[in-house]
Design a protein around this nucleic acid. Structure first.
Lengths: 251, 251
DNA sequence: ATGCTATGTGTTAATATGACGCAATGTACA
DNA sequence: TGTACATTGCGTCATATTAACACATAGCAT
C-alpha cells in the first residue's frame, strides 16, 4: 500500500489505489503473496498508487513487477472497491509519522480511497518476492491460512478467488501457475485447490486433454515416490487461441 | 456525465466517475439508454460523479434512478476504465462555460477521470427516461444502431455487452428485462438478441424450463398475428435462488 | 375453405458426463 | 528378493445432455 520513495501526493491520481491478489502454486497449495508491514506487523495485499500520467493497467503491471520481479504475467482486473468507510481510520497520525509522511499530506492519506483489484497468476518458482519498504516482509501464504488483513483486503481476496473459480470454467488456466513441464496430477491438484473440491482423475484427464492445449512429452517425472507420471507442457499457440475464444459454454 | 446542480468539485471523489450501460428490451431489440448533450449533440452513456461520502455502488444506484426513475434494479459493476488519455481534451473551455462551470474548477474537469462501469437491466416499459441537464435528450437506442459516443464510451458499452453475454451462461437473466407476463418466444428473442445468434426453439424451451424458474400461466397472449403463445411469469423465489447459486457449470 | 406463419410437443442420434474397474509402475520394507 | 502399498495410465458403461429435426395445432389473411 505504500512505497518507499513516495512522490508528492500531487503526482498521484487522487483517491485511487490498486491492490493485487497474486496467486502462486507450490507444494500442492494455492498461495497468495502478502505483505507484512514493518510498522505494526499488519498484513495486507501488495498495492500501490497510480501516477497521474499512468494508465491503471500499467500501474498494476508495475506493482506486480516490483513485487515479483516478473514481466508478462497473467494479470486481470476483477473488481473495484469503493465503500466510504473502507479505509477510514486506517492511517493513524502515528503511522503516517512512521512512514515519514509530511503533515500536509495527511488529509490525502486519510481520505477515502477507491481501490481497483487485479489478480495475477504467476509461476511460483520464478517469482522473487521483494520488500519495498524497510522492515517489510513479503511472503507466500497458503490461501487457507491467510491471517487477518487490513481494511477490506480480505473481501478483495475472496472476490479474486471467486472470480478465478468462475474463469476456470470459461478459459484454460494453469499456464501461468505451473512450471514449463508438469504432470497431469499436478495440474489436477491445481484445479482442485482452486475449486476447493476433488475431481475424478480419469475424467479430469479426458476433459483436460480434450481441450487440445497440452503436449505430452516423451519424458517422465523423476524422483517421485511412486509410479513416475508423464510430463506435459502447454502448447502455447493453442493455449493463446483458447484463451481468446474461451472454452465452449452453455447456450 | 454532468448534473444540473453541480456541487462544488470538493464534494466529489476526485478523478472518479461512474458510467452506466442501461439495457432494456423492446420490440425484439436490445436497447441502450443514451444521452445526447444539449451542448454539441454528442452522445454519451449516462453517468455521474461520486460524492465524497457515498459508496460507489450507492452512487451507481442514484444515477440509475435519476435516469430511469426505477429502484431495485439489476445493477452490476463490470469494469473500471482508466487510460490516461481517456478524457483528455474532452471538456473544452467553451464546453465548461456552457455548463456554467466556474473557471477555478476547470482543472478538475480537465484532469484524467477513472470511470467505473456498471450495467443495468431494466424493464423497458416501466422506465421513464429523464433528462438531467437542459437541452439534453435521453433516448433508448437499438444496440445495433448506437451512434458515435464520446470518450471511450463505445469501449465501455462493448465490454458491458460482452460481460452480459458471459453472465447469460452463469445465471438466469430476463427477469429484469421483460414485463411480468411474457412468452417463451419473447424470452428466446431476448437471449438471441443478447447473444447475437439464433437458437433452436425447441431446445431453448427444454433448457429454459429445466432451470425451474418459470411458471406457466393459464393464459395466452392476445392480439397476436398467429397462434397465440402461452404466457409465463418468473417464479421470483426460485429465480433469486438460482441467481445466488448460479447455473450449473463445467468442472 | 385454403394458405401462411408461428407455436407446442415429441423423437432420435451423437456427444458429454459421472462413476467405476483393472493392470502397470515404482517405493517401502519384511 | 518378493510382497504390500500407493499412484499412474487407460478403458468401460450407464446415464444425462445436446443438437437436429418432424409433425400437428392455432389463428390470421385472402
Amino acid at each position: 500500500m505504500l512505497k518507499t520513495h513516495l512522490k508528492s501526493s500531487k503526482e498521484y491520481q487522487p483517491g485511487l489505489s490498486i491492490d493485487c491478489v497474486i496467486f502462486g502454486f507450490d507444494d500442492n497449495q494455492l498461495k497468495v503473496l502478502l505483505i507484512k508491514t514493518g510498522y505494526d506487523n499488519s498484513w495486507s495485499l501488495p498495492g500501490g498508487f497510480v501516477s497521474i500520467d499512468e494508465d491503471i493497467d500499467t500501474a498494476a503491471v508495475s506493482i506486480l513487477q516490483a513485487r515479483t520481479g516478473l514481466k508478462g504475467i497473467f494479470l486481470r482486473q476483477f473488481a473495484t472497491f469503493g465503500a466510504v468507510k473502507r479505509n477510514q481510520n486506517h492511517f493513524s497520525s502515528d503511522a503516517l509519522a512512521y512512514f515519514g509522511i509530511p503533515l500536509e499530506e495527511e488529509k490525502w492519506y486519510k481520505s477515502r480511497f477507491v481501490t481497483i483489484g487485479y489478480y495475477a497468476l504467476v509461476n511460483f518458482s520464478k517469482a522473487i518476492p521483494q520488500p519495498d519498504n524497510p522492515g517489510e516482509m513479503v511472503e507466500w501464504i497458503d490461501h487457507h491460512e491467510v491471517p487477518k488483513l487490513i481494511l477490506d483486503h480480505r473481501e478483495i481476496l475472496d472476490k479474486a478467488l471467486e472470480t478465478l473459480r468462475t474463469e476456470l470454467n470459461l478459459m484454460p488456466i494453469g499456464y501461468n501457475l505451473l512450471p514449463e513441464k508438469f504432470t497431469i496430477p499436478e495440474l489436477q491438484k491445481l484445479y482442485e485447490t482452486i475449486l476447493g473440491r476433488t475431481l475424478d482423475r480419469r475424467n479430469f484427464l479426458r476433459k483436460i486433454t480434450a481441450i487440445g492445449i497440452l503436449t505430452k512429452l516423451d519424458e517422465k517425472k523423476s524422483n517421485v515416490a511412486h509410479k513416475a507420471p508423464n510430463l506435459y507442457s502447454f502448447d502455447k499457440d493453442k493455449y493463446e487461441e483458447v484463451l481468446k475464444n474461451g472454452l465452449t459454454q452453455g447456450w
